[in-house]
Structures are given as structure tokens and as C-alpha cells.
């Protein structure tokens, strides 16, 4: 049985992952900003068959509260061996371009808060010799900066690079670090965007995440075809890429 900590439990992808783990009878600790919503999700996971569901209120941007919440989670669960970091915000590129504050806020939410949590969690697992999993939702947007969303993309790139380093560091300790790069996912976060053929459902992405945790993969594109798309996008020479409208 896994003891799973989910940061950003109200995200649609996190909920879909939690459904699957609950149905398999694992134990979960949820965090999110809104206690009422987190409580609703906790109730759902109990009905679905989770052996234990605990929760705490956490705004990941309040970095000074991280240690307290993590200590609480570890005490409540006995230990934590699987972590899913799923919180994030799809910030508006235009707003960020016009405002230093908004750009830094986006970085705070999409990169720095996760980096802070991962630092604590990595040390916790290493010190306690837990050969667990740190799974983090990054994005295909982090693979290359594009004019339409480079603030979001740059924050996700920071996350991905941080994870690559962490994976390298923790490999010898037997700790699995998983970088998850979803493409377009049809969630409330993206409700305002026009949907096309490339869009995936949160439940399909969740299935990929659960499988990748099981198989201890390093970095996955979800759905898998994004690997091909991003390989092509990364291969375009910068001298040409800068002229494209992407």
C-alpha cells in the first residue's frame, strides 16, 4: 500500500489520479487552498475505497508553512512514500508581459513553490531511506519558449530542469523522480480555450501518471504523442524558430 501526498489536490488531473489510487485502496493525504473543497474530495476518495484520507489546508505560495504541513502529513500517515505535486496556474501571457509582479507571481506558483516543497521532500525521503516516488506535473510548454506562453513555459522549464538534477542526485538513494509533461488537457483550468484534436481528458492523463509511477519512469509526455511533437519543436533551429508565430 502506498502512502500518497498530493499537493494541489483540487486540480482536475490530481483528482483523477487520486480516484485511481483510492479505488486501489491506498492511503492519501491531500492539500489545497480551500478547506471545503479539499474535504469534498477527501469524502469522495473514502467512498471510492481509500483506506485512509487525511487533509490539510496549504497555499503552496506560503513557503514558510511548508515544513509544518509536511510534518503534519508525515505524522498523520506514519510516513510518505509517494508524492504528487500538481498545483499550478495557467497565467495569462499578455498580463504577465505587462507586469513584473504578475510574471514573478506566475514563477512563484508554477516553479518556486514546487522547488521549495521538493527540497524538503527529497531530504525527508533521503534521510529516512524511503525509496519512494516524487512525481511532479510540469508541462510540454517547458520544452521551448514560445511567444504565446513563455512565462508559464519558463517556470515549467525551471521545474523540469530542477527535477532532472534531483533525479540525478537521488538515483543512488533509490528515490524515483518523475517529470510529467502533459499536453493540452481538458480541465476547468483550460475551460476558456478552444479545444481541438490534440486535447486529452484528465482521466487519460491520470492513467498515464499512475502507470509511470508504477514503472518508475523518468520523464513522460502525456499523451505519448507529445514526445514526437516536442521532439520536432525542439529540433527547429532558433534562427528559424524566432520567426514563427507559436
Amino acid at each position: 500500500m502506498r502512502k500518497i501526498l498530493i499537493i494541489g489536490a483540487t486540480s482536475a488531473i490530481a483528482q483523477a489520479v487520486a480516484h485511481r489510487y483510492a479505488q486501489q485502496g491506498h492511503a492519501l493525504f491531500l492539500t489545497g487552498r480551500d478547506p471545503e473543497r479539499v474535504a469534498t474530495i477527501a469524502a469522495d476518495l473514502r467512498v471510492r475505497g481509500a483506506v485512509q484520507v487525511e487533509s490539510a489546508t496549504l497555499d503552496a505560495n506560503q513557503i514558510e508553512t511548508h515544513q509544518t504541513v509536511l510534518d503534519h502529513a508525515i505524522t498523520a500517515m506514519g510516513s510518505i512514500d509517494t508524492v504528487l505535486i500538481a498545483h499550478g496556474v495557467l497565467n495569462d501571457q499578455q498580463t504577465c508581459q505587462a507586469s513584473v509582479e504578475d510574471t514573478l507571481d506566475a514563477f512563484q506558483t508554477n516553479a518556486l513553490s514546487a522547488i521549495a516543497l521538493l527540497t524538503l521532500l527529497a531530504n525527508y525521503m533521503e534521510h529516512n531511506a524511503i525509496k519512494g516516488t516524487l512525481a511532479v506535473i510540469s508541462s510540454v510548454a517547458g520544452d521551448r519558449g514560445r511567444q504565446s506562453n513563455y512565462v508559464y513555459g519558463a517556470a515549467k522549464a525551471a521545474k523540469s530542469t530542477f527535477l532532472a538534477g534531483l533525479r540525478n542526485r537521488l538515483h543512488s538513494a533509490g528515490i524515483h523522480v518523475l517529470t510529467i509533461k502533459p499536453g493540452f488537457v481538458d480541465t476547468p483550468m483550460t475551460a476558456h480555450l478552444k479545444k481541438g484534436l490534440l486535447w486529452a481528458q484528465p482521466d487519460d492523463v491520470a492513467a498515464g501518471i499512475v502507470k509511470s509511477i508504477e514503472k518508475r519512469r523518468d520523464c513522460v509526455y502525456l499523451p505519448g504523442f507529445w514526445w514526437l511533437i516536442m521532439t520536432i519543436i525542439r529540433a527547429i533551429p532558433e534562427s528559424l524558430f524566432k520567426r514563427l508565430t507559436l
Binding site: 469534498t40 469524502a43 469522495d44 467512498v47
Partner: peptide, 16 residues
């Protein structure tokens, strides 16, 4: 469609 949470189940009465 995202309101897809189960809130309570009573295994004695079968009320969901």
C-alpha cells in the same frame, strides 16, 4: 462533468 465526486455511501442501507 467535473462535479463527479461521490460524497457518502451507507453500506447498510445502500444509500449513495
Amino acid at each position: 462533468r467535473f462535479r463527479n465526486r461521490l460524497l457518502a455511501f451507507d453500506a447498510h442501507s445502500g444509500i449513495l
